[in-house]
Design a protein around this nucleic acid. Sequence first.
DNA 1: GCCAACGTTGGC
DNA 2: GCCAACGTTGGC
Length: 155
Amino acid sequence: MAGRYWLMKVEPTAYTIADLERDGVTGWEGVRNYKARNYLRDEIGPGDGVLFYQSNADPSGVAGLAEVVKGGYPDPTQFEKGHHYHDPQSARDAPRWYTVDVRFVERFRDVVSLAAIKENPKLRGMMVTRRGMRLSVQPVDTPHFDEVVRMARAT
DNA sequence: GCCAACGTTGGC
DNA sequence: GCCAACGTTGGC
């Protein structure tokens, strides 16, 4: 199956596109929402494209691109006692939470802001523009992905 | 910092 | 299994 596209959110106080550029590859840990978990576990695979979205930021928006290099596997932090993401209700033989590995691809010179995304009629209907949309892993339509990249390059 | 929207929890 | 209370997200 052809690669698919996703938007993944993170707060810059936790992790930024600059951190990913430094690290090269990182595990997208700490997702604790079932819908997002299902995407991570069942649908996201190597080669998929990722819009790296920074939320609660100034401005919030897409800061760059990443690529999935490893599909869904159990998020190790759920088993680490004392870890912020530790989940005592998750069993090793039946992990509740999943993660994927992503690789740095590109850091946009300027963030494609949520405001700019909302203003672009070509991006109408994109999930992230929906009010109250808190899902931290979202599918993105190919034309929407391409348009965001185009916006990042058109300065 | 406010608060609307949404997800999860827990009493019944 | 309903639904109110509570906690979290995240734009503004």
